[in-house]
Design a protein around this nucleic acid. Structure first.
Length: 202
DNA sequence: GAGGAGATCGTCT
DNA sequence: GACGATCTCCTCT
């Protein structure tokens, strides 16, 4: 299974955000394969978007957003959480897509352990929904940290973090306002798979 | 089930 | 020195 090519990310963030729904996030962690299907994303429009990290211009923290498309931008927030983004559009635009929720597909036992939710033996449907239903949660479940993952190439078959298309049919997509931000939150830039039980709360 | 407060620290002013 | 693209736990109903 080949990762999505960098040309996929060479588009405006709203097109990338909706196009990513239904694709697989694949993570190699200590030789084990962890995977989840994207069910919720958010677009951030770079230097023109007051809610985007890139709004104030390039800094040491957000430099990945201003680099080539298809890279992982990981940042630390609220003193305890990480969030995972994909850079998109052209280098210098500062645009990105935030990954908000995944449907767990492989390695659920390890994900549960990383999340501190047990993980030995059977996993209940309730636990399954708690694994990746939020930006901070999915990073914890996939062992994504700024130290380990910031700047990784999501388009390389050899990358320990990549996005692939497994040929699943395109999901039914719905658009809603963005979540968890104070500036320009009313912009309809949150893309979700309609009816998925794995969406983040609100 | 809903609502609110606390946790905790890197980053920018 | 303030705040944030969040989560969990506790309380109240």
């Amino acid at each position: 299974m080949q990762p999505l090519p960098s040309s996929f990310y060479l588009r405006p963030p709203d097109a990338v955000a909706s196009g990513l729904l239904g694709k697989l996030v694949v993570r190699e962690h200590h030789g084990e394969l962890l995977a989840g299907r994207l069910v919720e994303t958010e677009a951030y429009f770079g230097t023109n978007d007051p809610a985007a990290h890139a709004f104030a211009g390039e800094t040491a923290r957000n430099s990945v957003l201003f680099g080539p498309p298809g890279r992982a931008y990981v940042y630390f927030i609220y003193g305890m959480h990480f969030c995972l983004n994909a850079s998109c559009e052209r280098a210098g635009d500062g645009a990105g897509v935030l990954f908000r929720a995944l449907e767990p597909v492989a390695g659920m036992g390890t994900m549960a352990r990383l999340r501190g939710l047990g993980g030995a033996g059977e996993i209940s449907q309730k636990t399954l929904r708690l694994l990746c239903s939020g930006p901070g949660r999915l990073c914890q479940a996939l062992a994504v940290t700024r130290d380990g993952c910031n700047g990784l190439d999501l388009t390389s078959p050899r990358s320990p973090l990549r996005i692939v298309d497994d040929g699943a049919p395109a999901p039914e997509i719905e658009v809603t306002p963005r979540i968890g931000i104070s500036k320009a939150a009313e912009l309809p830039a949150r893309y979700i798979v309609r009816g998925s039980p794995f969406l983040s709360g609100r």
